[in-house]
Amino acid sequence: MSPCENLHPLLNRYHDGELSRRQRARVESHLAVCPQCAAELARIRELGQGLRQFLSDECAAVDFSGFTERVMQGISRQEPLPLAARVRLWLGEALRVYRPVWLASVAAATAAVLLIALWPGAPANGLSEGKTPTAPAVANGETPQPEGPQVIIDRMEYAGERSMIFSVSRNNTTVIWLYDMNRLPDGKSEGDDL
């Protein structure tokens, strides 16, 4: 294949400025020694200039007066979709586009519900949890039995931050769970006394 045949497909792109620096140098060095390719490039330039001139003349002949007003009138005449159709459209898009998100959310919520429901020893009455309570607390729930509380916490000082107090079974048993005790600083596990 001759150099002209190799470079001929590149002339259009050279004219449009799409070649890399190396390709451009290669084309230019060939054009300097090849009058046929130089003539072809000149023809491409004439064609491009003619096309630009034609489009410029055509655009000058078009009347754009009132164009914006006509477009705006067309927009304002469009009736909004009914609410049901909009909801249906929104739901369809949400379910389709955000499918992984809501699938993951539903799965996480289901797992959380199962975990809470099946957690062994979970306090049924929603009991005191958190930092050390200082006020008297009835540890067997917000709705004490008619017989009265089985345990009353008058005062509690805890070096940690998270504790839970709850009753288990009907045998007058109270559980005090210090569930961040394994994360207490060394100074608190063996150091100063409360």
Partner: peptide, 21 residues
């Protein structure tokens, strides 16, 4: 000792399970 001090009242025969260490 040294991390917890709690004052409480329990019914006679009551049991307290303290767990954490």
């Amino acid at each position: 000792k040294p991390v917890l001090k709690i004052e409480l009242r329990v019914t006679d025969g009551g049991r307290t399970l303290l767990m954490g260490p």
